[in-house]
């Protein structure tokens, strides 16, 4: 039995045009897990995250965050989008982007002040980016941009963190640095949901995993459900080739 449920998804179906991207997903994510969402390209991993966040409207089903709809729990959820989803040539600095994480708690019209700046600087320090605070964001490397996005989510000081491929295009050092921060957050009782691509690191990084391929295949503790059966169901018969390449 699960005591505290962070996210509960019932009968979620999402479609672009006529093609279903997510089909009848039922998912219960307990509080305090560090969970990977794995599945092949086009499995609907990003869509699942965006549906949880209310960015995409499902055609059926519901998502509950701590028992309430997302719109009522905005302050409890932080989001790290895919790095490629924004234009990094935007005229702004790393610090400025991180301060954006405080906009939600500020609400409409009110401007960020010293308190918000301090929080942003702390978050930058945590991800090891303090020295780049005044740098124009287009002059940051891919890994540094990813860290800035992570810092922006950290500033939100949420209970649930949803991350869309935070390891995409980052080097091994940055990957380790990021996963350490994620593990720290889990220690602090936060719930983390991460779209992940590298099956081999799943047991090392995560304690919970969801297999997804349009339909929900399986979800549970990594040690219980990371097996050939589920991998084959998710990736098809050739998954071993993909993993061992």
């Amino acid at each position: 039995m699960i005591d505290n449920i962070a996210i509960k998804i019932d009968d979620l179906t999402v479609a672009y045009d006529y093609k279903p991207v997510l089909w009848d997903i039922d998912l219960v994510i307990p509080e305090g897990v560090l969970m990977a969402i794995v599945g092949p390209n086009g499995a609907g991993k990003s869509t699942l995250i965006k549906s949880i966040l209310g960015i995409i409207k499902p055609i059926a089903g519901s998502v509950q965050i701590f028992g309430k709809p997302y719109q009522k729990q905005v302050s409890k959820v932080a989001y790290v989008p895919q790095k490629g989803s924004v234009d990094w040539d935007f005229p702004t600095t790393a610090l400025d982007v991180v301060i954006m994480g405080t906009y939600g708690s500020l609400g409409w019209i009110k401007r960020p002040g010293q308190k918000e700046k301090k929080a942003a600087l702390e978050a930058l320090e945590k991800v090891g980016m303090l020295e780049f605070k005044t740098r124009q964001i287009s002059k940051l490397s891919g890994g540094q941009q990813q860290r800035v996005f992570l810092a922006r989510a950290l500033v939100q000081d949420a209970s649930i963190y949803l991350m869309d491929e935070p390891f995409q295009g980052v080097d091994a050092t940055t990957e380790k640095a990021i996963i350490n921060i994620l593990k720290e957050l889990r220690q602090a009782g936060k719930t983390l949901i991460v779209v992940h691509h590298d099956l081999q690191t799943v047991p090392e990084y995560f304690d919970w995993v969801t297999f997804l391929n349009v339909k929900g295949i399986a979800s549970g503790p990594v040690k219980d459900i990371l097996n050939d059966d589920n991998l084959t169901k998710t990736y098809g018969i050739n998954y071993k080739v993909a993993v061992n390449k």
Partner: peptide, 20 residues
């Protein structure tokens, strides 16, 4: 609406998730 518009320009999806 400077803050909100700036956020919308940079990252519209994120703006939505913050409740704007």
């Amino acid at each position: 609406f400077w803050k909100e518009l700036k956020l919308l320009l940079f990252d519209a999806d994120y703006t939505k998730t913050l409740g704007f």
